[in-house]
């Protein structure tokens, strides 16, 4: 359930970057405070382990298809919430950069969806609550199962909210929820079973690893702080999302408006438009129809969104034809320039 940049609006992506960055800063501080410097290489190496583990498949019972470990809950059990969150975040950073698994802008969303819920909700409140101190195998399996399912359900729901709020996909909220939640119920059950089987193997073979992790992690979770952090995050995201969902302003402009104040932006934009328009008139290669008719780049499609109000006329087709031709030309230009640059480089050598 890695989200991609292509489905995200800058406002949602940016907000989630902020949330993720804040949680990373908070968790880093916590880990540093614990003064357990042993954890630094351990976190990194366990992160690499998650990569290795994700590449190994197993057959899902009764279905014949294969699955792999997600690892969020496992890391939380081994490292405690803060260190686990940082480790999951770094796994996602590497995935986004090297495997194009989830984009750079979507990183904030992915870190929040796949890191926050298992580390700060599913593990401390569900897994520890059910598993207690030294669980037997059945108890441990139940705890891992419920925690994994809960963590993934929350994560999946969060994906739905972020996608709908971004407004790039046309999937309605209800359909998306109906699609995501059941799929992630299945994934969650598998994840829970796998986590339980790995944890119980390690607990039997090397009990000190599991027990070394447990006490530190309990001490590391002040319940109040976690709840507070969750509330703040929920309010923040909820607030921002609902506002965007209702207003759906253009993302970049919103971002610029946030920095410079909205009037200035429209001012410069208008100026740019008139400047370009006059430039075109000066070049005089174009008949006068195009510019006024299509308006700015922003309201053009808004008009198009209401076909009744925008009857198809030659101008419109002319516009879209020009667009298509222009797109093709710009593509050719881009690659032409690239090719020329490369030729030149090779020539220099």
């Amino acid at each position: 359930m890695h989200m991609a940049d292509a489905l995200l609006s800058p406002a949602v992506g940016g907000t989630m970057w902020g949330v993720a960055a804040g949680t990373i800063a908070y968790s880093s501080m916590k880990v540093k405070k614990e003064l357990d410097e042993r954890k630094i290489p351990l976190m990194g190496v366990l992160g690499a382990f998650i990569f290795a583990a994700q590449m190994i498949n197993f057959t899902i019972p009764a279905t014949g298809s294969s699955g792999h470990l997600g690892g969020g809950l496992l890391l939380a059990i081994l490292l405690g919430p803060h260190a686990a969150f940082l480790t999951i975040a770094s796994v996602l950073v590497v995935q986004s950069l090297f495997f194009a698994d989830g984009g750079i802008l979507a990183l904030g969303c992915n870190i929040f969806n796949l890191g926050f819920f298992p580390a700060f909700i599913a593990y401390p409140f569900i897994y520890r609550g059910i598993a207690g101190g030294e669980p037997g195998k059945a108890r441990l399996t139940a705890a891992a199962l419920i925690a994994a399912v809960a963590g993934l359900q929350l994560g999946a729901f969060s994906v739905v909210l972020e996608t709908v709020a971004s407004g790039i996909s046309s999937l309605p909220f209800s359909a998306f929820v109906m699609l995501m939640q059941p799929i992630h119920l299945a994934i969650g059950i598998v994840e829970g079973l796998v986590t339980a089987s790995v944890v119980s193997f390690v607990a039997a073979a090397r009990p000190e690893i599991i027990s070394a992790a447990a006490p530190g992690s309990l001490a590391g979770v002040p319940l109040r702080n976690t709840i507070l952090a969750f509330l703040v995050a929920a309010l923040l995201t909820g607030g921002v999302f609902s506002w965007f969902a209702s207003e759906k302003p253009d993302g970049l402009e919103w971002a610029i408006a946030g920095v410079t104040g909205s009037e200035e932006v429209t001012g410069t934009e208008d100026a740019l438009h008139t400047m370009l328009a006059s430039l075109q008139e000066k070049i005089a290669l174009l008949p006068g129809y195009a510019f006024r008719e299509t308006g700015g780049a922003d309201d053009k499609w808004a008009e198009l969104g209401h076909p009744a109000m925008a009857p198809e006329d030659s101008g419109r087709i002319g516009t879209s034809m020009a667009g298509a031709i222009g797109a093709a030309i710009s593509l050719m230009l881009a690659f032409g320039i690239g090719f020329a640059l490369k030729r030149q480089l090779v020539g220099e050598k």
Partner: peptide
């Protein structure tokens, strides 16, 4: 802010 492809297209069709 300005659709470069559109602009280029018009330039050429023009």
């Amino acid at each position: 802010l300005e659709n470069g492809a559109q602009w280029l297209g018009r330039l050429v069709t023009g």
